[in-house]
């Protein structure tokens, strides 16, 4: 079972995760079906910026984060932003959206100018997240764990980051055992997605380059 302390940590992270989302008016404009290539580019860029902003607000609420060295805070966010964004996007694509919304969203991404060799692994990742049928708690915790990865480039005080990440891994581990008693591998599967995210992150820089070229 989760201890009282672990339960509070989980609820606290879940609240922050639910609170900080991309503003609704922005997601609404994403669903308008008519758009030019330029409009699409601008909107996707604005979305990405907004996404980083809400991610930072979520991160600020992670217990202990603000006590870390300021440059380490930036190194953690810089190293993880792309992965956390892929995770949140995967959650959006996994949800049962109103009829047709998925198609409009996918259409926008496919017409963004990013080449297929980068788009395909991204949608494969979304699919692999969908197969796990993750709960909101798991999404919130996995995002926090991704952000608090001590092995990001330029992190100086690795030990302090480890101390923040570890209790979250323990909560996620126990949570998985409680909520997936028939799938003892669930926790391992979640951690496996983190490896996939690293690969996507690695290709992201190349993806941006190809986008700019187009």
């Amino acid at each position: 079972e989760l201890t009282q302390e672990q339960l509070s940590l989980l609820n606290y992270i879940l609240d922050a995760y639910n609170k900080y989302r991309i503003p609704l008016d922005m997601t609404k404009s994403l669903l308008q079906e008519q758009f030019s290539a330029d409009e699409n580019f601008i909107l996707l860029t604005e979305m990405a910026t907004s996404h980083v902003q809400v991610l930072v607000e979520f991160t600020k609420r992670l217990p202990g984060f603000q006590s870390l060295d300021h440059e380490d805070q930036i190194a953690l966010l810089k190293g993880s932003a792309v992965e956390a964004m892929f995770l949140r996007s995967a959650q959006i694509f996994t949800r049962k959206l109103p009829h047709g919304h998925n198609e409009v969203l996918e259409d926008r991404i496919r017409k963004s100018g990013i080449s297929d060799e980068y788009i395909t692994p991204m949608f494969n990742f979304y699919k692999s997240i969908g197969e796990l049928q993750m709960t909101q708690e798991e999404h919130a915790l996995l995002t926090a764990i991704t952000i608090l990865s001590p092995d990001r480039p330029f992190v100086k005080d690795v030990l302090s980051v480890e101390r923040l990440q570890e209790p979250m891994l323990e909560v996620l581990h126990t949570f998985c055992k409680l909520h997936h008693p028939h799938d003892p591998q669930h926790f391992a599967r979640l951690l496996g997605r983190l490896t996939e995210l690293r690969t996507l992150n690695h290709h992201h820089a190349e993806m941006l380059m190809s986008w700019r070229m187009n």
Binding site: T45, E46, T49, Q53, E57, K60, A81
Partner: peptide, 21 residues
């Protein structure tokens, strides 16, 4: 415009300010 800001700039600005304001 936001599109001219790099990831690190956005992170630094967001860390300094408060999104709620």
């Amino acid at each position: 415009p936001a599109s001219n800001l790099g990831l690190e700039d956005i992170i630094r600005k967001a860390l300094m300010g408060n999104f709620d304001d």
